[in-house]
């Protein structure tokens, strides 16, 4: 799909998304080569979302059909939903990393912002991919109505945007307590490998959240 908006702004956000995707790809590569702990699923999701959103922001950057993206994010959403259900059924509640924006890390050093916020992000991607090519709002206004008359998608888009921006706020709030972890800080018995940067992982969450919020708001414009 294609979003409307100032061209330069689209390029700006697309650059941020491609940078985020490239960084997450680098994280995965480094983590795999040096066996350092990281959130593999989250980093992979960021790569996919960054690439997909870059294509939405700048049509020339799109390289995959919308149907493929839909299937991808539906599958990712199912995976995160399963993680959320598993966390809920195991301990009665989803632990720390399950809270939106609580970009924490487990004892093993894995970074994760939790299944709920990523489930929401996958849902938001599906909402965006379900929108007509020119945006629901534009089509609705062309017919003489408001974006709200264009169906449930604008309402869903706003709800998703509010949720994602809330997760951005919470992730930013947590930045100051995400400390760099050195090899010496690892407890005995825990892998000596230094986890990948937690703060930068949280920054990726923030960048993806803001960009996704922007794209969702564009759906009503």
């Amino acid at each position: 799909m294609e979003m409307t908006g100032p061209g330069w702004l689209g390029w700006l956000f697309a650059a941020v998304m491609l940078g985020t995707a490239a960084y997450c790809a680098g994280r995965l590569a480094v983590a795999w080569r040096s066996r350092r702990p990281t959130g593999y699923a989250v980093d992979l999701t960021h790569i996919l979302m960054g690439s997909a959103m870059a294509g939405m922001l700048v049509p020339g950057l799109g390289f995959a059909p919308a149907g493929l993206w839909r299937a991808t994010f539906a599958a990712a959403g199912c995976w995160f939903a399963a993680q959320a259900v598993r966390g809920l059924t195991r301990g009665g509640r989803v632990p720390a990393q399950g809270w939106p924006g609580a970009a924490g890390h487990t004892a093993a050093g894995h970074t994760s912002t939790g299944p709920f916020v990523h489930l929401l992000a996958c849902g938001a991607m599906l909402v965006m991919l379900a929108a007509p090519a020119s945006g629901a709002g534009t089509a609705a206004r062309a017919a003489g109505g408001t974006a709200a008359a264009g169906g449930p998608l604008p309402v869903l888009a706003i709800l998703c945007a509010v949720g994602l921006l809330a997760s951005v706020v919470l992730a930013t709030d947590r930045l100051t307590v995400l400390a760099p972890v050195s090899a010496g800080a690892q407890a005995p018995g825990v892998s000596a490998a230094v986890p990948m940067s937690l703060r930068l992982a949280a920054c990726c969450d923030i960048a993806v959240g803001v960009t996704m919020g922007y794209l969702l708001i564009l759906m009503i414009a």
């Binding site: 720390a96 609580a102 890390h105 400390a179 407890a187 825990v190």
Partner: peptide, 21 residues
């Protein structure tokens, strides 16, 4: 409390204590 474990772990070595979350 859902923040608890992550940030206890953030500043201390080893896993968060059970129930900290």
């Amino acid at each position: 409390g859902r923040f608890g474990a992550a940030h206890a772990a953030a500043g201390s070595p080893g896993p968060a204590p059970a129930g900290a979350a």
